[in-house]
Amino acid sequence: MIKRLALVTAAGGTLLLLTACGGLQEAVCGGGEYPVANIGSTGSACQAEGTEPDAGWIRYPEGKVPEKVGDKWDTYWNEHILDEDGNESPAPAETN
């Protein structure tokens, strides 16, 4: 019984360590939400599924939606912006 408890404790500690050290990536938005971009800046937020983005916000282009913090598209959108028509451009230096 003590060996089993030690094994469970060690496994839990390993999972905690992996989580704390970034072994598991955090989702950009929670369940029932999707990410939206702030028009003209690198800002982002989460919008409730089934609703359109609020004024001043726009959906990310299909196939370029960030899913995890630090993933390819999360990093990309830290350096690029969208206009109100969804056109992409490099972010001005002051918005980075």
Rank of each mutant, 00 (worst) to 15 (best):
Y60D: 02
G40P: 00
T9I: 14
S89I: 02
I81N: 00
I2C: 13
R4N: 10
E94K: 13
Q25L: 09
S89M: 12
L7W: 12
G12E: 07
P53G: 09
K64F: 11
A91H: 02
S41E: 10
G40I: 07
V36E: 04
T75P: 00
G30W: 03
A93I: 12
T42D: 01
G86V: 01
A91L: 04
W57I: 02
A11W: 07
D83N: 11
L5I: 15
G13V: 07
L18C: 13
R59W: 00
R59A: 08
Q25F: 07
K68R: 15
R59C: 05
G43N: 11
V28S: 03
L24S: 15
E84L: 03
P35L: 04
A11R: 05
G63Y: 00
A93K: 12
P90R: 10
T51R: 14
G13T: 06
P66R: 08
A48T: 15
A27K: 15
A45F: 01
L82I: 04
D83S: 06
M1F: 12
H80A: 02
K68H: 05
G13K: 05
W77N: 01
V69K: 08
N87D: 12
D83R: 04
T19P: 00
G23L: 10
T51D: 10
L15K: 02
A10D: 07
K3I: 12
L5Y: 04
D54I: 08
V8G: 02
H80E: 05
T51H: 11
L18P: 04
N78I: 01
L7N: 08
A10S: 11
L7A: 14
Y34S: 08
P90C: 08
P61H: 07
T19E: 08
G86D: 04
I58G: 01
Q25V: 12
D83L: 05
W77L: 03
E84N: 00
H80G: 02
G43W: 13
E94G: 00
V8Q: 13
I2E: 15
V8K: 12
C29G: 02
N38A: 15
A55H: 11
S41W: 05
R59D: 08
G13H: 02
C29R: 02
G70Q: 05
R4K: 14
P90N: 09
K72T: 14
G40T: 06
P92M: 12
T51C: 10
S89V: 05
Q25A: 15
E62G: 07
V65I: 10
M1V: 13
G50F: 11
P61G: 01
C21A: 15
S89H: 06
A10M: 13
L17V: 14
T75H: 09
Y34Q: 11
L15T: 04
Y60R: 04
G43T: 07
S89R: 09
P66L: 03
T9H: 09
N96H: 14
N78M: 11
L24M: 13
I81K: 00
P92I: 13
I58M: 03
I58S: 05
V69F: 01
A37Y: 00
M1R: 10
E79S: 11
V8P: 00
K68E: 13
G40W: 07
L7M: 13
A10E: 03
T95C: 01
Q25R: 14
C21T: 15
P66D: 08
G63A: 03
V69G: 01
